[in-house]
Structure formats: structure tokens, C-alpha cells
Design a protein around this nucleic acid. Structure first.
Lengths: 331, 331
DNA sequence: TTGAAAGCGCTAACAT
DNA sequence: ATGTTAGCGCTTTCAA
């Protein structure tokens, strides 16, 4: 069974008693074949279990219609973005080729794989590569950077207004009556600098310069746990955290130490990842607009490929606050 | 820059002043070209920035050397498996093609994509498809099922001895002095039935039939949290949980309710996912041998493709216990 | 509406 | 050691 050669276009043509060209047209849903022929071809194809060979197709047409996506497999928010990208790719005529960054497979390797697959454009999720490397890459093919802020001549960037996001968090907490608000940051992670700045500016705007307190954090639960421990000696009444994953580490340490959330300390995360939505976490957080971001990323990549004129290289998507159970007035 | 046509084999041949065949040989590192020619070709290729076109190559050679991998993008343990698969694929001469299952993209769609890419074999991580569908698929190409137990004529299965895993967990707890040990199960998830059975058998073996208590759980933090709440009214002294993710939900609810872990209740997870290893979670768990499983999965797929004789269709990898901080003698 | 022929970039079989 | 030829499965002229 497995050894039967796959059916080819020629097989279908023979069986349907027409030329290859006609079969080609029909398979691509192009006009130019009579309804009668169309039906015959379709029948023959079905009977033979024919599936077009994308490689040959692409080889001939000189295009792959493949968009490469580089993502961090350990990163929950990237999972959300990939989910969005798949949805956005529907009906565009382009396919996604995934390439994961793992602890043992770095970004350049992930990118190399996609280039070899002849992807026409690349979408990079929170890439760690240096700006110079990204710029060089963008000389070869369109590159869309998602969820990281970079400036490069040929780079398209779709990102959240991260500073605004943190301002929303601080404003929310201030509105609740907080003023001793700390920030657990993301270190050198993409977006961390902007979020730090947003926090600082918002605190300043409210006249709480004296309360500004930035604790070194990171992107993982572990980083959050460590940061929370550092906070234990001198608790603020509220904490904004770099991301949801880090925030769960914070919550965990607070729980273990009998610190009520939001009773004693309020916690606000960032990303609105699936983590935050879990009933027992129920984290107040800043939501990045994943559908908008992924739709735009795809649209941008395709526009570059099809030479559609584009004005802005950078697109900044506004975030919004999602109030859940970890924020309340100070006691 | 971007518009320059990519260099082809012919370009390199012209530039090096040799035939295409020679270039082809050199690029594939095959013997049959003089060192002098080899150098000239390599120089020319470098000068032109030539990269072989894998599609054309594969079209011609009739093979894609592509192994399709279907995984759940929201599933932390799958992330570990994919990481292992990438490492295992190094130096095999085969490449991995990833296809994700997302909330909006089901398994059959993920598989369809890979088939269209002309993958030669498929590796499915904890597939949800029905046995009949998997069997039908296996008629078309070699299929290796990872981390799920299925029986089908042409299916290769690599999985952990899940019943043994739960026996290890129960034995460990019994050795510590526990006898009121509950199990939060995984419902209909892959592996759940075996783990339930392992729990039941181990309890029976220790003569604790009267203490057998199975609580409906699931794969997510949420499921774990719900199950833990169900337990609150009548706490056992120890709980074995379907997987680590679910166990973190359990831990969280216990923390919130002031229940000491492991003081009041011991908790043992399953998977040894990156989650369990986090310092602040520090979960005692059953480790699946990811390197062994992924190495075997790859080897099996390749063996099928190369008609290497294989005796067993099913390979059962032994798990082992990883003792961390969530298990201790009952108080 | 249909078909014949050329060729995408490459490898394989066969010459030399 | 090197070159020539044919053709993988498809799309794309172009002609009928």
C-alpha cells in the first residue's frame, strides 16, 4: 500500500483523458476549464488520491508562498502568538513554516533552517539577535519583528506600546489608592526597557518619584520568585511585573509566605497569556492585542512580498488593562 | 540587493568553469572531484552566496528527508519533547518540519500541512486522533506515536511505562510512611488510563485497597486546582497527580488554603517538565526519559524509511523518580 | 476551452 | 576526474 507511487498530475491527466495543463488549472481553481472537464478531473484526482506536490509547484512558479516563523518553544506568550499567526494565515494563500528556538538550538540556527526552506519572508517573535544581524538578514528577504522594539532600515516592527501598558497598570493601581508600587522588571528581555520606562514615567506623572522601586526580575517563574523574595523584607502595597510567567512566580512566593493577594499586596502582570486567565491564578494583567498584532505581522510580510506600498515601518498596537482578582485597594 | 536573482548551480558552474555535475558533487560532499576543482567550486559558490535549493534537490532525488512533527503548542511537555527531537535530529541527515496544534487548528489540519510538504514520516506527540484515523494515516507513510499508547498494525509507539511511573510514585510515598494516598487523574488524556491503573495496582500491592481514591483532574493547572478544591474537605496525606502542570494547580490551591506541602500533604507530579524543576515549585515528580524517547522516535522513523528491520513496534521507556521538595513523611 | 512544449534547479545515469 | 543528457512534477507560455 505504502509502496504505490504517489499519483502525479500526469496520472490524473491520463485518467481523466485530458492534458496536464487542464488538470493544473483545475487543481488551482483557475478559470479556463469547462465545468464538464473540471468535474472529470476532480473525480480522477479523488479516485487516485492525488495531492499536488508543493515542491514541484513552487520550483516551477519560482515562489514558495512560505512565511517562516521563529519562536521560543518554552515561551507561553509565543504560543499565543503562533496560534494567532496560524489563524491570520488562513485564506491568505501563504503557509507558515515553524522553526523553534530551544535551549539547544539558537536563533541563528532556527533562521538558517527557514532560509533553506526558501521562505519568502520571516516573522521573528521577540528575537534575541543583535540589530546588526537582523538588519543584514533583512537585506536578503522581508523581516517582520514581532514583540520587540528594534530600529533597522529594512525591518518591519509590530509591537505593543509597552510603556503605555505599564502606565495603564500604574494608573489602575493608583486609582485604587496605591502609591507604594514596585516594578519587577524583565532585565534585558525584549520590551523590558520600555516597560521600565513606562513605569518610571507613570510614577513620576503621579508625583510618586520617591516611591519608584525597580527590582531585577526576568522572564521566568524562577526570576519572579527570586524577585518576590527580595521584596519580602520591605513589602510595597502593589507590584507590577514584567510578564505573567514571572508574575506567577511572584504569586507563588507570596502565597507560601502567607502574604494575601490582593489583600496585602496587589499584583499586575503583563501579556494576558493563557496563564493569567486560569481561574486559580486570575491575574490582573496588561493584555497585548494578539489578534491585531498577528494580523498586522502577516499583512506586513505579505505586503512587502507583493510590493504593496507601506508607509510606516513600525506599528505600535495599544494594549489594554484586564482587571481580574489580584488587584484591590490597599488595606 | 534583495532583487538579485539567487545564484543557481549553473551560475556556480559557469563561474568555476566546470560542469554542473561537478558542482553538484562538491556541494553534497560526494567523492569524485579533484581537490583543485573542489576548491574552485567552493570559492565560486562562496563568491556568489550560493545556497542549494532544497526543493529542487528533493524534487529530483524523489525524497524530502523531512520528518513531520505534530505537537501541541500550549503543552509544556511537548516543548521538552520538541527540544529533544531537534537535538536527536542533528547529524541524521533528516530535517524536522514542525506543525502545531492550536485551539483553532486541529490535529488533522496540522497533519494535512505536513503531508503537503511531502514529509517522509510523521512523529505525533500525544495525538488525539482516533486509532482508526492513525491507522489509515500509517498506510500512507511511517507514523511514530510519541507519548501515547495506541495499538495499530502499522503504528510505531514510543512511550513511557506509565503504570510503572505511578507505581514509583506510590512506592516512594509508602516508603515515607503514607497510606492515605489519592490520585488526581488525567481524564481521557493520553496516558491517563495507564497512570490510573498503575496507581490502583500499586495501592493494591501495598494492601491499601481501602484507601484508593481517584479524583477527576485533567491536564491543566485549572483542572488541578479544581481537583484540589474537591480534596479540601477530606485531605489525604499524599497526592499523586497526572502531570506537573496539573500539579502546580494543586500546589497553588493548597498554598492558598494554608495547607503545608509537604508538611500536611505530599504532592508528586509527572513529566519532570521544566515547570517541576523551578526552584520555587521544586516538585517531586516522575521523569519521562525525554532524550531516550526522542532518540528512539527519530531512530524508529528513520529505520522505517530505510527499511531497517525492526522487531518491536512498541517501545516502552522506563521512567524514574525525581525526589524534590514536595514529598516528606506524613506528620 | 484545450494541448504541446519548454523549463524551474537540481541529481543520476551514463558517457568520456 | 569530468561532462552530457534526461527528467523529477509541476506551471507557463503559446498555439490550436
Amino acid at each position: 500500500m505504502r509502496d504505490e507511487r504517489r499519483a502525479t498530475l500526469t496520472d490524473v491527466a491520463t485518467r481523466a483523458g485530458v492534458s496536464k495543463s487542464l488538470v493544473s488549472l483545475v487543481m488551482r481553481d483557475e478559470p479556463g476549464a469547462s465545468p464538464e472537464t473540471r468535474r472529470r478531473v476532480l473525480d480522477a484526482a479523488a479516485a487516485l488520491g492525488y495531492h499536488p506536490d508543493s515542491r514541484a509547484r513552487l520550483l516551477r512558479s519560482g515562489r514558495s508562498r512560505l512565511l517562516g516563523v521563529v519562536f521560543g518553544i518554552q515561551h507561553p506568550f509565543h504560543a499565543d502568538l503562533v496560534t494567532g499567526l496560524y489563524s491570520a494565515a488562513r485564506e491568505t494563500g501563504y503557509e507558515l513554516a515553524l522553526s523553534a528556538v530551544t535551549p539547544e538550538r539558537d536563533e541563528s540556527e532556527a533562521i538558517r533552517g527557514l532560509l533553506q526552506d526558501r521562505c519568502e519572508a520571516l516573522i521573528l517573535l521577540g528575537p534575541e539577535s543583535r540589530t546588526a544581524a537582523l538588519t543584514r538578514l533583512a537585506e536578503r528577504l522581508p523581516v517582520v519583528v514581532l514583540a520587540r522594539s528594534v530600529r533597522g532600515p529594512d525591518l518591519d516592527v509590530i509591537r505593543t506600546a509597552d510603556a503605555t501598558g505599564l502606565a495603564l497598570a500604574v494608573d489602575h493601581l493608583v486609582a485604587l489608592g496605591h502609591r507604594r508600587i514596585a516594578h519587577i522588571d524583565g532585565g534585558r528581555a525584549p520590551g523590558a526597557a520600555d516597560r521600565r520606562r513606562g513605569y518610571r514615567q507613570a510614577m513620576h506623572r503621579h508625583g510618586f518619584d520617591a516611591e519608584i522601586r525597580i527590582v531585577p526580575g526576568g522572564l521566568t517563574e524562577e526570576d519572579g520568585a527570586r524577585a518576590a523574595e527580595a521584596l519580602l523584607g520591605d513589602l510595597p502595597t502593589a507590584v507590577t511585573v514584567f510578564n505573567d510567567r514571572c508574575a506567577t512566580g511572584v504569586l507563588d512566593v507570596f502565597n507560601r509566605n502567607g502574604i494575601q493577594v490582593p489583600g496585602t499586596v496587589s499584583v499586575v502582570g503583563y501579556d494576558d497569556s493563557s496563564l493569567a486567565r486560569l481561574a486559580h491564578i486570575n491575574l490582573t494583567t496588561i493584555a497585548q492585542d494578539v489578534p491585531a498584532m498577528t494580523r498586522q505581522a502577516l499583512a506586513r510580510a505579505i505586503a512587502r512580498l507583493e510590493d504593496t506600498p507601506i508607509t510606516a515601518r513600525e506599528s505600535i498596537v495599544p494594549p489594554h488593562l484586564v482587571i481580574r482578582g489580584t488587584s484591590a485597594p490597599p488595606s
